[in-house]
Amino acid sequence: MKIILTLLISVWMALPASAVEPSEVLADPALEARAREISADLRCLVCQNQSIDDSDAQLAKDLRLLVRERLVQGETDAQVKEYIVSRYGEFVLLTPPFNSSTYVLWYGPPVFAFMGLIALFIFFRRNRRSPAQVQAQAQTQAQGLSAAEQRRLEALLDHEEVEK
């Protein structure tokens, strides 16, 4: 029991903590949940690989408050994001938008994976032996060694002993 509890606590402590301060949290849980979701997808401009939800930077805090303020004013999630994008560019979105400048980004990986699959398919198909080849091999195995092959084998074995 103790061990399980210790494990649970250590796993919980290893989760990334959010930077949202108690004073920032909105009274309405539904709005707060939307705010959290939006800010998790907005890049902090100061420490660029964190979301504003994770970042302790002052600017991130002010952006979190701005998101909440706009939600309280009745804006939709998209409108809030649109405003911040209009100030900082699409760079602030941690999920890149799907448009003509990002087609390579979104389509690239599936296209490469598909090309890889095709390459694998061709490779295995080429290596697979034809039924005629399989039959020929089975025949040789059934017949055993021919007299000539037997002599060659013995010669080789003798030779090896001499070398030793």
Binding site: V46, L59, D62, L63, L65, L66, R87, G89
Partner: peptide, 12 residues
């Protein structure tokens, strides 16, 4: 509270 700074897209 960064209202002006955000209006100008200031990062630092």
């Amino acid at each position: 509270d960064s209202k002006g700074a955000i209006a100008f897209g200031v990062t630092g």
